[in-house]
Design a protein around this nucleic acid. Structure first.
Lengths: 338, 338
DNA sequence: AGGAAAACTGAAAACGTTTTCAGTTTTTGT
DNA sequence: ACAAAAACTGAAAACGTTTTCAGTTTTCCT
């Protein structure tokens, strides 16, 4: 069942069939109807390989994602998939581990699958313009951007929240309550720009509240993974440092922290306040409910696709789209004990 | 940069290049080396559209998934993706909602993307052999199978746990502890075979313990979603029914139940024991830790791909692969109060 | 050494589209 | 009514592979 059969059946040339299929204006309404009817009756479905070969492109975009376990990234990922298929594109996902290079992985994906564009999700992206040029296709960084580093002046698209400012806001919430000894729970800063940026927000919020950074209150987990966060918090607690609040850079890590605190008999929020950033679904159901700055994950995914598709269409320009978080008040905040 | 350039560069015909690329035996070792070197030097990457068109197939499999929000399915999905790319295949994911028909969606996906095979993930699959024949490609049902219904005698592949038996086991754990008034928390049985099967296991476990089913203790949420599970449990609790334990057919729903119980001042496990099936990562961090039967999610995904690839290779046969769960003891189990 | 089989190679024909280009109608403006 | 422009159409040439088939070497056996 090829385009040829449809042509024969409907009595026009294959060129015309192709034109109908691609909404080319140069075809009479009457002919179009006839062709459409033939397609319907023959249950014809175009061969996408042949179409791609003819067009010399694929209508496929790739998503390079670091840290698939993360529930927040999952949410973004699913939104991306939905939007991609809504636009009649296809999507291939490529998971990378912590020791892999996103640019290199992305580039090889682009070449082997002949992708039109790329979305980088949940990692780090700190390359020189020369390195970026090797990619050969437009891309969007989703969930993060680089406001410093070598890319300062390079135009590339991103859809993100202002990690620095949001972290600042979260920590300020704590200092406003009167907290002075605020610990920070973060994943390694090597793989994820986010970790670095949010940590910076933490530092500056302390500074602006007149608090000196205490390095002993930095809890650095091996990864963003909930298990690692739990272990890190556990061993931090063993050290017996004095603190009254924790800022967790991710919800999942915050959930681990609640558990670790509970295990050693500390009450949240009476003994320790807690605030996080992400707003994943399950953190509404912790006890007490996690107070967190909710990132619009669905919107992030949708917008990332929109931005990429626009860049693809115009063949030029780039777009930085900053989204806002919303505070979801739970029950993990209290004034420090006197 | 096409195969032609490589042919010219290395001084052999394009046929030979193609043969090297496809590991055809009919090529001298010396020539193979020369060609490989040329490919390397020219940074040649085959055009997959052309390759697919020539081969008349795609090396792509589709995954039709119902209920993407579910953390357990996510875990399976990621395992599938990893295994697919390890086998040098591609994967396209297709999310469907609760009112969509998996077979129809799968069939249209197969045709438009020219897929070689399909994996159905986390839904229901109850079709006649005639309906199935319309698919045209092999498929694997992952996370569930139908042991009754119209497919009883039809051979089709699946990778699953014995939902009925595992539910039975979970509920037996409760009856063995002395519980008589056991509620069940389930999602709608319309979309998901799993809900139906686990419910049946619940019923039979009660029966074998000499307990009569009390319809008032069935908590049916609108979906598997954690929010819906919370709402359903909340309104169940308002009715003031007498019960001492809950069997939740999914971890996420169990997490919602813990929260709902806590909200009305009931203690887990003192006032209400709780057991679930799934074993998602976050349920290790509830307070108390959720006791659950852990499904091997990674293995499930990996095996589903293996099975599908095997069926694809042999062009015949099918395979039912039953996996086992493991009890993860948490702190949500206790004897009923006297 | 001679013949047959095995190993290797390349020209050319698929594969199912899109696109270009030349040609034929129809419409429009005067 | 006539030319010019616009609308429409189809033949044929891409697109970059794989595969078939016929042909040429090499190897092996007696």
């Amino acid at each position: 069942m090829t385009i040829k059969d449809v042509a024969k059946y409907s009595g026009v040339s294959i060129t015309t069939i192709s034109r109908v299929l691609n909404n080319h204006p140069d075809v009479r309404e009457e002919v179009r109807a006839k062709v459409l009817k033939a397609i319907e009756e023959l249950h014809y479905v175009p061969n996408s390989s042949a179409r791609d070969l003819g067009k010399m492109q694929t209508d496929t975009i790739g998503v390079v994602v670091r840290g698939v376990g993360n529930p927040f990234l999952n949410s973004v990922l699913h939104a991306i998939e939905k939007e991609v298929s809504r636009a009649d594109y296809s999507m291939v996902m490529h998971q990378i581990g912590s020791n892999e290079d996103e640019l290199a992985e992305g580039a090889s994906l682009v070449r082997s699958k002949r992708l039109k564009g790329l979305i980088f999700l949940g990692g780090r992206f700190d390359y020189t313009p020369e390195q970026i040029a090797t990619l050969g296709v437009p891309f969007v960084c989703c969930t993060y951007t680089n406001t410093f580093g070598s890319l300062k002046k390079t135009a590339y698209s991103s859809v993100y929240i202002d990690d620095y400012a949001e972290a600042f806001r979260a920590v300020k919430t704590l200092t406003d309550l009167g907290h002075k000894k605020i610990a920070v729970l973060l994943g390694t800063t090597d793989d994820h720009s986010i970790s670095e940026l949010r940590f910076k927000g933490y530092c500056d919020a302390l500074k602006s509240a007149g608090i000196v950074l205490d390095k002993d209150l930095i809890i650095e987990a091996k990864s963003f993974n909930i298990d690692d966060a739990f272990k890190a918090t556990e061993s931090f607690l063993k050290k017996g440092k004095d603190f009254t609040a924790i800022f967790s850079i991710a919800d999942a890590m915050g959930i681990a922290a609640i558990k670790a605190l509970h295990t050693v008999g500390l009450n949240v929020p009476d003994d320790c306040s807690l605030i996080a950033i992400d707003g994943i679904q399950v953190s509404k159901y912790t006890i007490p409910t996690l107070t967190t700055l909710v990132q619009p994950s669905k919107q992030m995914g949708t917008r990332a696709v929109e931005v990429l598709l626009n860049v693809l269409k115009d063949e030029c320009g780039s777009c930085q789209l900053k989204l806002e978080t919303a505070l979801r008040e739970g029950g993990t905040l209290a004034k420090p004990k006197a």
